[in-house]
């Protein structure tokens, strides 16, 4: 501490001279953080579509920078510490960006190569998020009492398609029953899932759309889950 004692026998570089932040600053920082928390909850209750994620991350980042700057004293830290800590975020971005570059483009090969097919099953291979949304698997809840009649209407969309049963998981099988047994397994029909249109639209942008859409429409989506993996052949045995 600069003003505490004079250490005449040593140079200025001998003792630590910490910067002491006024208590009021800390209180202010806390108030801001609580306000931002309130704001992020507020933003959650407003429907902004895809922007909700952006807003949430943005507010979180503002909060994080405030914590870093004042509570963690990054403002007064040795420069290297600041660079290295922020630099680590750069590596996180690489990690995220590159991995997403794969997961978002997988199974969408564009004009040259066509649709990727799993050699084991002849089905479209695991990939592209948008297509999976349309094919997303759902478990149907038991009908509410007095709602039985409506179930049939939905039933059209039901398929016998297996849900990748956790039976395959040893532990669950030993327990006698899989948790999903409760609801009758059902795959979302292409016409039913609200995202199907979205997927089709997206697929429409590429020349391979007919192939993809056709495959979906033909009901070949059963076992998609299985083809995700190298164990495709096994998981499709339900067909």
């Amino acid at each position: 501490m600069a003003d505490a004692h004079a250490h005449a026998e040593h140079g200025d570089d001998y003792y630590v001279h910490a910067h002491i932040t006024p208590a009021r600053t800390y209180v202010l920082v806390l108030a801001t953080l609580l306000f931002l928390t309130f704001l992020t909850v507020l933003a959650y209750n407003v429907h902004l579509g895809d922007w909700n994620l952006f807003v949430a991350v943005l507010i979180a980042t503002i909060k994080a920078s405030i914590v870093g700057t004042w509570f963690m004293h990054l403002k007064y830290e040795q420069r290297f510490n600041l660079i290295f800590f922020l630099g680590s975020l750069f590596f996180v971005i690489i990690f995220l960006g590159y991995t997403v570059n794969d997961t978002e483009h997988r199974g969408r090969q564009g004009t040259l190569t066509g649709v990727r097919v799993d050699p084991a099953t002849g089905k479209r291979a695991f990939g592209s998020g948008s297509v999976l949304q349309a094919e997303g698997e759902f478990i149907r809840l038991p009908p509410l009492p007095g709602e039985a009649g409506q179930a049939g209407q939905e039933g059209e969309a039901d398929r016998d398609g297996e849900v990748p049963e956790p039976e395959a998981a040893g532990a669950a099988a030993e327990d006698g029953a899989a948790p999903t047994a409760a609801g009758e397994p059902a795959e979302a029909g292409d016409s039913e899932a609200p995202t199907a249109g979205e997927a089709a639209a997206e697929a429409g942008a590429s020349p391979t759309a007919p192939a993809e859409a056709g495959e979906e429409a033909s009901g070949a989506t059963e076992g998609t889950e299985g083809t995700e993996a190298t164990e495709g052949a096994e998981a499709t045995e339900g067909e």
């Binding site: 800590f85 590596f91 995220l96 997961t103 998020g129 999976l132 997303g136 995202t195």
Partner: peptide, 23 residues
């Protein structure tokens, strides 16, 4: 910084799965 990278794996998985399985 090490801790940041430690948690980063979870966030990467989070964002990918969120994109894949929005419902």
């Amino acid at each position: 910084a090490q801790e940041v990278l430690f948690f980063s794996g979870l966030f990467v998985a989070y964002f990918i799965f969120r994109k894949w399985y929005p419902e």
